[in-house]
Design a protein around this nucleic acid. Structure first.
Length: 334
DNA sequence: TCTGGGGTCCTAGGACCC
DNA sequence: TCTGGGGTCCTAGGACCC
């Protein structure tokens, strides 16, 4: 889905159409928060998702800043996914606004399906999409990114090398900022350069799993199946304070709220957990996590909070805190 | 100066067991 | 005095994705 959060906001307030829209935090560019989505009008000013709202404001002060309205996006996402489900049950959602579809067994032409989907989503939801069609998930994902917005991109088997080789390595799925930098240090700038590197060289530099993945991905190889449902492996919540604090009561109180929330979600989804993790991010962005695993699976708030306090009491607070987080993992279904 | 929130997966090291 | 090799579980941190 193109600029999904921003596009849903425009459905709520059509009079804003054509204006630069920035969705993020609680919609106040003077406060802490980052851009969750920016309309293409805002992107012209250099606004990107992940950017601090304050920075976005400097780049585009005339933009309309709106708070994140998850409920609205979840609703729209439901409608989007159910349209996809009419074509195949083999759908793997990836966040609220993306999905992989395996249409191999539908007996229909993938391009026809894609054309129909784009049309229906435009007509029924009033939203535009960018579609990628390819022999595997990796290439479909990269294809969908190539001609945004309103894209329609096909990568055929015979064109894989030609299409990949000239792209910067950063465009490869799984290569972020850090890996890009390390690859540059190895004089690897394009996906073609990466494809020329021997597997062993990559494994030595990036570890067994990641090295191998880089090798395969650079050759367009991806055998991973479309998986319609994953068991969750953790539930968590975290929050950044508007101002850094050393007030231990405030920190503990905030953790308490997060823990209640997470435990409610644990119960609602009918899981029990064995591990509790606290996360503290200090003023200088140094971040620590401290975990404890108990013998017995539990979903009882008082058990979970007791474990959290055991951990909490061992944590040092030598400097101000900007974020606290609470997570449960080691899950099993009730 | 600034750097959200919710997830996943991987690695390295230590404890422990046979 | 010198102490292997394999496996599992746990913790902490880091990179990446949307």
């Amino acid at each position: 889905m193109d600029a999904f959060f921003a596009s849903v906001e425009l459905k709520k307030r059509p009079e804003l159409k054509g204006k630069p829209i920035i969705v993020g935090g609680d919609g106040d560019p003077a406060k802490r928060g980052v851009v969750s989505a920016a309309s293409y009008e805002a992107r012209k000013f250099g606004v990107r998702s992940g950017m601090p709202l304050r920075t976005a404001y400097k780049k585009c002060p005339q933009a309309i800043f709106l708070p994140v309205d998850f409920e609205a996006y979840e609703n729209e996402s439901e409608k989007f996914m159910s349209i996809l489900r009419e074509y195949t049950p083999l759908i793997e959602s990836f966040g609220l606004d993306e999905a992989f579809m395996d249409v191999t067994e539908t007996g229909k032409n993938a391009l026809d399906i894609a054309r129909e989907l784009k049309k229906r989503i435009r007509e029924e939801l009033g939203l535009t999409t960018s579609v990628g069609i390819a022999p595997n998930k990796l290439l479909a994902k990269m294809a969908s990114d190539m001609n945004k917005p309103n894209g329609f991109t096909v990568i055929r088997e015979k064109d894989i090398e030609k299409i990949l080789s000239l792209l910067p390595v950063r465009k490869l799925w799984g290569v972020g900022e850090k890996t890009e930098k390390r690859l540059h240090e190895l004089d690897i700038k394009t996906i073609g350069d990466l494809a020329k590197a021997p597997v062993q060289h990559l494994v030595r530099n990036f570890g067994e799993a990641f090295g191998r993945m880089l090798y395969e991905h650079s050759h367009g190889i991806d055998e991973s199946p479309v998986v319609p449902f994953y068991e969750p492996s953790s539930f968590s919540r975290e929050v950044t304070f508007q101002e850094d604090t050393r007030d231990l009561y405030l920190i503990k109180e905030t953790l308490f709220e997060l823990a209640k929330d997470v435990t409610d979600r644990l119960k609602d989804n009918e899981y029990k957990a064995r591990t509790v993790t606290l996360k503290i991010r200090y003023r200088d962005f140094h971040t620590i996590t401290r975990a404890k695993t108990v013998e017995e699976l539990t979903n009882s708030f008082s058990d979970i909070w007791a474990t959290a306090m055991e951990i909490f009491n061992k944590i040092d607070f030598p400097k101000e805190v900007r974020l606290v987080g609470f997570k449960v993992s080691g899950l099993e279904k009730n």
